[in-house]
Structures are given as structure tokens and as C-alpha cells.
């Protein structure tokens, strides 16, 4: 069981190492997009500093969503998804491996870049740390829900907008909690509650999402 998990992750990472455009462009896009807000609103503007956690979180949502959709669509085109279904191993386990890869590729680089955004947006070091922490705790839920959405829409061609419509409402609680971590910490209040809730959503997604994705993928192939 563990062997196949590692093997899936290893070969997916090898694929992505050779297809750098798939994950490097979203990172560059993230940098440019957020800098545009700074240029548009003026970097020394108090409003920008107040709005920047929300800006970063929302951009993060969109970019992870579109990256996961892209990666999934390629697998669909190459026909490797049916190999997963035809494996004697449980499908949810294999999709959990995929989710780990998607998190490593679509979320982790952006999270590691948050200190850079902190500097661009002139956030205090405390706010940057809060942003980093909230993204780290909340992003597994984003990636896992993204995989459920991508499997659900995998039978539809060009489903990008539909996928966003489907998933963004589910992302709202995560967004609210993630942002409130930053806001509360800026006003020097305890954020244990928000982080715990965000972590709970991630754990819940970790347990439920792979099973939901497995069901969705079986149904999508059985059209």
C-alpha cells in the first residue's frame, strides 16, 4: 500500500520536474498579479495594507484552483486516470497520493513565497507570519477540495469556469477563517480558535475528500 503511494508521488513529481511550465507560470503569475494591486493602489497606501491579506488569499484560491484543474486535465487527456480506476488498490488511496502531489506543486511554492509578498505589500512581520501560518494550515483543504472538483468535472470538456462556480462557495469558509487569522493577529488577539478551525477543516477534507473524489471519478468515467 505504502509502496504504491510513494511510487505514484515519485512518478508524478518526475513528470512535473520535466514540465516546469505547469507550475512555474502560476508562481510568476501570482507575483505579477499581486504586484499589480500594489501598483494600482499605491504601495504606501494604508488601504492596500489593510486589504492585502484578502488580496493574497483570493489570488491564492484562484491560482491553486486553476493549477489543479490544468494538471488534472493533462492526466485525463493522456488516459492515465483510467489506469488508477483499474488498479486493484483502493482508488481513494491513489487519489490521496495525487492530492499530496497537487498540494506540493500548487500550494507549497506559493506558501513559501509569502515573506516576499509581505515585503511587497509592506505587511508587518507579525502579519506575514500569520498569513504564512493560515495558508499552511488552510491550503490542504483547498487542494483536497480542488481534487474533488476536478474529478467531478473531468467528464466535461473546458469546465474551468464551471469548476470555479462549483468550488468557490466551498472555499468561502476557508477564506473567511484564513483572513481572520491575519486580522486578529494584527490587533494582537489570540488566533488559536481560527487556526484550530482551519486545521479541523483540513483534517476533515483529508478524511472525506479522497473518498468523494474516488466516487466522482468512477461516475465521470461511467458516462
Amino acid at each position: 500500500m505504502l509502496n504504491v503511494f510513494y511510487s505514484c508521488i515519485k512518478s508524478d513529481l518526475k513528470t512535473l520536474q520535466r514540465k516546469r511550465a505547469d507550475w512555474v507560470y502560476p508562481i510568476v503569475f501570482f507575483l505579477v498579479f499581486i504586484s499589480l494591486f500594489g501598483i494600482g493602489l499605491g504601495f504606501d497606501n494604508q488601504r492596500l495594507i489593510a486589504a492585502s491579506p484578502a488580496i493574497i488569499w483570493i489570488t491564492f484560491l484562484f491560482i491553486t484552483l486553476s493549477t489543479i484543474d490544468n494538471l488534472f486535465r493533462r492526466e485525463q487527456e493522456e488516459g492515465t486516470l483510467s489506469q488508477l480506476v483499474l488498479s486493484p488498490y483502493p482508488l481513494w488511496w491513489l487519489l490521496l497520493a495525487k492530492s499530496v502531489v497537487f498540494w506540493l506543486v500548487a500550494c507549497l511554492p506559493l506558501i513559501l513565497l509569502t515573506p516576499v509578498f509581505g515585503i511587497i505589500m509592506q505587511l508587518s512581520s507579525q502579519a506575514t507570519a500569520a498569513l504564512f501560518l493560515s495558508l499552511l494550515v488552510g491550503s490542504p483543504a483547498l487542494a483536497l477540495l480542488g481534487v474533488v472538483g476536478a474529478t467531478l468535472t473531468s467528464a466535461m470538456p473546458r469546465s474551468g469556469v464551471f469548476l470555479a462556480l462549483l468550488l468557490l462557495p466551498l472555499y468561502v469558509p476557508i477564506l473567511i477563517l484564513g483572513e481572520s487569522v491575519v486580522v486578529e493577529l494584527q490587533s494582537a488577539q489570540s488566533v488559536h480558535f481560527q487556526l484550530a478551525l482551519l486545521g479541523a477543516i483540513s483534517v476533515f477534507a483529508l478524511i472525506g475528500a479522497p473518498h468523494a473524489a474516488a466516487g466522482a471519478l468512477r461516475a465521470a468515467l461511467d458516462d
Partner: peptide
């Protein structure tokens, strides 16, 4: 109809992954 091969892997890597998936 589809070969189910990952285009950015070599035949050897593809086969090893498929065999691992097929137990």
C-alpha cells in the same frame, strides 16, 4: 484506444509505474 502513457516519462518509467499500480 488510448495508450495511457505519460508523455513526459520514458517507456521504462511508465512501465514501472503501471506495474506498481497493477500490483
Amino acid at each position: 484506444h488510448q495508450n495511457s502513457l505519460k508523455k513526459s516519462l520514458t517507456p521504462l518509467e511508465n512501465l514501472k509505474e503501471q506495474l506498481c499500480l497493477a500490483n
